[in-house]
Every structure is written in C-alpha cells, then in structure tokens.
Design a binder for these strands. Structure first.
Lengths: 267, 267
DNA sequence: AAACCGAGTTTCACTGTATGAAACTCCTTC
DNA sequence: GAAGGAGTTTCATACAGTGAAACTCGGTTT
C-alpha cells in the first residue's frame, strides 16, 4: 500500500467534521476536532475555501460545506450504474449463504427487485432484476411494511390482497401481527406465501428514523429453508447490509433509490 | 494571504477533473489532466479513495466520484439559509444601481420573491420577501416565461390574465411577441404592467439547456426607469447573475430552488 | 481606560514529508 | 516473445508543510 499523504488526509478529516448536526464550525472548533494546531488548520481551511469546498459566513466567521459538494454529488449520482452498483454486495452475500439473494425497493404496493444473484446450487430459485412482486406476501415486501405507519400499510393493503397460495395472508389482523413481530425481531419471513415451495427471509436497511430504504433477502426452496435455517441466514444478511450502509451511506442510498423509482425502473 | 497547501490544492484539482461528461477517469487520464507525475497522482488518488471521496471500479480500474459527496451535499444543502443566501449578491447589485432589487423563482403561474434589498433612495419601491406576483405581467415573470416552451406558457396564461393597469398585457398574441423579443435580447421589461408608475427590468439565470432557474430584477418608479435607464441596468444585473453562477454553480442553484419551492416558501 | 481574553491571522526556522524520476510488474497486443 | 501501456513501488532529495510563538483585533472585565 502506498503511504498516504498526510496533509491531504488531514484536510479530508476536516471535511468529515461537518455533519447533519454540526453544519457550521469555527476554526477553533475544527482544530480541536482534528487535533491540529490552529495555524495548520487555518491554512487548510483557506485552501478548501479557495476551491469552493468550504465557504465562510462573513458575519459569524464560521465555515460551512461549500456548494462544490452539490455539484459533485450531481455528477456522482449521475454515474452510479443503477443496474450494477449493488452487485458486489449481493455476490458477497450469495457466496456467504449459497443461496439466491436479491435487493429490493418498495414502489407503492409492490417491491421491485433491483439486483439479483442466483445461487450456485443445482436446486435454486430463478429471479430477475426488474421483477415486481406484491409487497404484502413477500419477505422483502413485509420487511418494508413492518416499518411503515399503520395508515400507510392499510392504504397499501387496500390495493388488494390476492390469494396466491394456501398460506398467502388473508386476514389483515393476522398480517398486522406478523408485521409487528417482524419489526421487533428486525427481519421478515415468507413461507410459501406467494409461491408454493418457496420461502424467503428479508432484512431491511433503515435510516436513522427507522424508515425502510431497501430490503435484502435470501430466497430458496422450502425444503432447504427451514425456520432455523432462515434465522441463521439473518446474520449474514445483516452484515452485508451493514457493509452497504458503511460503504455507501444512508443519504446516498436514498438518492439512489429515488433515482431508481423515478426512472420507472424496469429492465 | 496564507500560502496555500500545494498537495491539497493539487488533490482538489484532481476532484475537479470529474465533470458531467467525464464521470470516470483512469490514473493516466487524471495525471495528464492535472500535469502531475503518475506516482504523485497515484498517491493522492489512494488517499482520496481511502476516505470515500473517490471509488474505483474493480473491473475497469477507473475512478469515480465517491458516495461521500452525496452525504456532504445533503449536509451542505440542509444548512443553506433559504432566507439569506442571496443577500450578498442582492446587496452588491443594489449598491451598483441604487435601486430596489429582487430575486425570484417561478412557481406555477406566479413568481415568488425570495430575496429583496430596497433602494437607499428617498423614492423607492417597497417589496418584501415571500411576496407572490403573477408571472405574465411582471419583469421577473416574463424573464421566466420567455425561456419556457410555448405550451408551458400557454398553460400558465390559461390560469388567468387579470387586468391590473392600462398596460397589463391582454392579448396573448402581443405577449408572445414580447416574450420572443425578451428571449432574443436576454432581459425582460415591464412598464407599469402590474402597478401604475412602477417599472422593472429582469434578467434570468439559465442553465446550460437554457431553462430558467432564477430571475434577478431591478424595480423603480417609472419616472426614474426610462427605457434607456433600464437597458443600462441590464449590464449590472448580468454581472451579478454571473457572479451567482460562478460562486454557487448551476446544480446547487437548482437544488436551492427546488428546496424553496417544495418548502412552500412564504415568510 | 487599562488589562485581559479569546478568536483569528501571520511569521519563521526546521525537518520530515511530499515529490518525481526511474525501476518494476502485470497485462494485452503484435 | 518482444513491445507497449497501465498501474504500482522505490528512494534520495529539496523544499513544502508544519507548529510554536508572536501579533492583531474585537469584546469583556476590572
């Protein structure tokens, strides 16, 4: 590994001091946060300001993140490859658990699969990107619903609850109980609710106020997906979800999701 | 002035290499663009990548702007002060031309004044932030309409064209001619079209595809606002508009405008 | 009004770090 | 298998980045 450039690293640390809560910081605050002498910090701030990465409020003298970031974010968002951005994570998960895995967003009363990696096993579930499935009877869908308000769920359920299999949820009562449990334990399970002989587990990615953004799931043949097995898979899914949040970040994920939904995603 | 930090400046230059057209760049491309040896460039790229400001496509090896920018842009956007961000520019303009000046966005068939600085003169026009005026008979409004499609303009005009003064435009024909001229010369003029004895000139801020984002205008008593005077003011307005675009940038301006409009701006 | 304080800014001598030429390693292509 | 091109590592050197300290400028306290 190449030796990092100290001054640059320090400057980037300065930028990372700014958060949702701490929009605006003074020289002194920053130099305390990064543990650098004020003179050094000052020079870095000036450089950053000179290139529009920071700007300074003339009145308060405090620094703010500059407009440059909005320009750059636009470019960054524009070249995110909707089809493939999640693949590395899905592949990791599929390798970890050896099953078909997919990542979904919620659009109205349906989930849309925005990324899929199929299992390497002989008996596997075929799934394809762009597929839309009803939310109320799929693991991914229920992972979303469990973190919506009751009124939002109700309005989604009112769009219809077709019966696909003997175990498709039919009573709203029961479904609400399921969703409550799902919220408590943090993962959703569908046992042949949409297709016979197919089970699935899903874990949502939530923002800080517990709103669901994405749902990651593993799907497989019922005989391989016992309840215990599915519970065991939750751990793998969770850790991949964490990796996604760490590498990409909640704001970026939200931006990607809204880009996908607005593009009327379908392959 | 403090001496800038060379390595940091260079690294920021690297970031600025990425544009709408050139999303993804290889080491060699970047080192050519910034005129630095590959080893230096390489180390900087690694540092930037390490802090999520860049990421590298494993397949192609090319660099992209990182998700970090989306996080930061969120923060930056959140702490833009809707009320005051434009004040320095408005003050500059007001000082330059000695008149009441304002900045407006278009919302449906109305313009909303999002920033105002009143003239220091005895006879001046009172104007206030948050005020909504009809688009079809104000300088700011016409500055917008002139750069919309005919069908968009028509649908706005269909919302009504009340007659406020003897010179309020009444015939769509005539108004369209006015708008065509406005587009050609790049500024809009209203001579007592909304209030008697009050004239105004407005110059829009356009994006690259000539869509109007904001309109900056100077308003004053008709006796001081002869046609020649208004034409002369266009220069001052233009140069302040340029300053806005340079300092803030088109993408950021768009983001600010949509933030304002979505917030149902009203003081 | 003098003394004090805290925040920001500038100075300057020192040294450790960023630098870039060159060497090296994989690739792909001819 | 030689040639070329892209990325990566090495290393000696110079000078760029550093930070202690001095300075400036408001505001506040004595």
């Amino acid at each position: 590994m190449t030796t990092p450039i100290r001054s640059l690293d320090r400057a980037l640390d300065i930028l990372c001091c700014f958060t949702q809560e701490e929009h605006s910081l003074s020289l002194t605050q920053i130099s305390d946060l990064v543990n650098l002498p004020k003179s050094t910090t000052y020079r870095m701030l000036s450089s950053l300001e000179g290139k529009r990465f920071l700007n300074r409020d003339n009145l308060t003298g405090k620094y703010h993140l500059g407009y440059q970031f909005i320009d750059m974010a636009n470019i960054a968002l524009q070249d995110i490859d909707i089809q493939n951005w999640a693949l590395p994570f899905l592949e990791k998960l599929s390798a970890d658990c050896g099953e078909t895995v997919d990542l979904a967003v919620l659009d109205q009363n349906q989930v849309i699969y925005i990324g899929v990696v199929e299992s390497k096993q002989r008996v596997k579930i075929a799934a394809s990107v762009g597929q839309r499935l009803p939310a109320f009877c799929t693991a991914s869908g229920k992972a979303f619903l469990a973190f919506l308000s009751d009124s939002q769920v109700t309005s989604i359920l009112n769009k219809g609850m077709p019966v696909y299999t003997p175990t498709t949820p039919r009573l709203k009562e029961k479904l609400f109980t399921d969703l409550r449990m799902t919220r408590e334990r943090g993962y959703a399970i569908s046992e042949q609710e949409y297709e016979t002989d197919i089970n699935a587990v899903a874990v949502p990615i939530l923002d800080r106020s517990m709103r669901p953004i994405l749902a990651m799931s593993a799907v497989g043949p019922a005989y391989r997906f016992s309840n215990e097995r599915m519970v065991a898979l939750v751990g793998s899914i969770r850790s991949v979800n964490e990796a996604i949040v760490n590498e990409i970040g909640i704001p970026a994920l939200k931006a990607i999701v809204s880009k996908i939904v607005n593009s009327g995603f379908s392959i």
